[in-house]
């Protein structure tokens, strides 16, 4: 993971129009930008994500009207442990952008919900709560979606075992 942090320090993402617009619109919010394989992303603090997303959606020059995906990575043992990843698309401009929020390890990682900005965020956030245990503050219906309601544990976490049966041999 150390090499990954090194790759983030200098990147062509600064030339991305969305990143430049974000830096101009949110001057006191610490925003880091990075890029890999031609895909740019910006890392914003959790408190700012709703305002940032609303800006990206409503700004006339950016118009990121579609939230394609919300997912999360568990990067244990890296600190911060959680990385919530949002994929955005601007349909009129045919441009993609990625937003990330880093959350420290703790008993109850929490991020504000994007449901006030994008309707589709609802089920994506429920899935991340179900499988990773990340809470989304302000979500209208934060319940388990894929596993039974009384399931204990968050299977997609890195320290959660795969489960299943013992077999006599492994691959």
């Amino acid at each position: 993971m150390a090499e990954m942090n090194a790759a983030l320090t200098e990147s062509p993402a600064e030339a991305n129009s969305a990143v430049m617009a974000l830096r101009a619109a949110f001057p006191d919010v610490p925003i880091r930008a990075a890029s890999m394989y031609g895909q740019d992303w910006a890392i914003v603090p959790a408190e700012a994500i709703v305002a940032v997303a609303r800006f990206l959606r409503d700004d006339e020059t950016l118009r990121f009207d579609s939230l394609v995906d919300i997912t999360a990575s568990d990067l244990l043992p890296r600190a911060p442990r959680w990385e919530i990843v949002y994929q955005l698309t601007s349909m009129p401009r045919n441009v993609r952008f990625r937003l990330k929020v880093e959350v420290e390890d703790g008993p109850d990682p929490e991020v504000p919900s994007l449901t006030p900005v994008y309707l589709v965020a609802n089920w994506f956030e429920r899935e991340m709560f179900d499988l990773m245990g990340i809470r989304f503050g302000g979500h209208p219906n934060l319940r388990r979606i894929l596993l039974p309601d009384d399931w204990q544990g968050f299977p997609l976490r890195y320290d959660h075992p795969i489960g299943g049966e013992e077999v006599g041999f492994t691959s």
């Binding site: 090499e3 990954m4 895909q39 990575s73 994929q87 993609r96």
Partner: peptide, 23 residues
């Protein structure tokens, strides 16, 4: 080490794979 998001047009719509590699 890296990450990528690759989307294709499946018969149902946008099928995307977000892949993170730690080496």
């Amino acid at each position: 080490i890296g990450e990528v998001y690759q989307a294709i047009e499946s018969p149902r719509g946008e099928l995307g794979f977000y892949l993170v590699s730690d080496g």
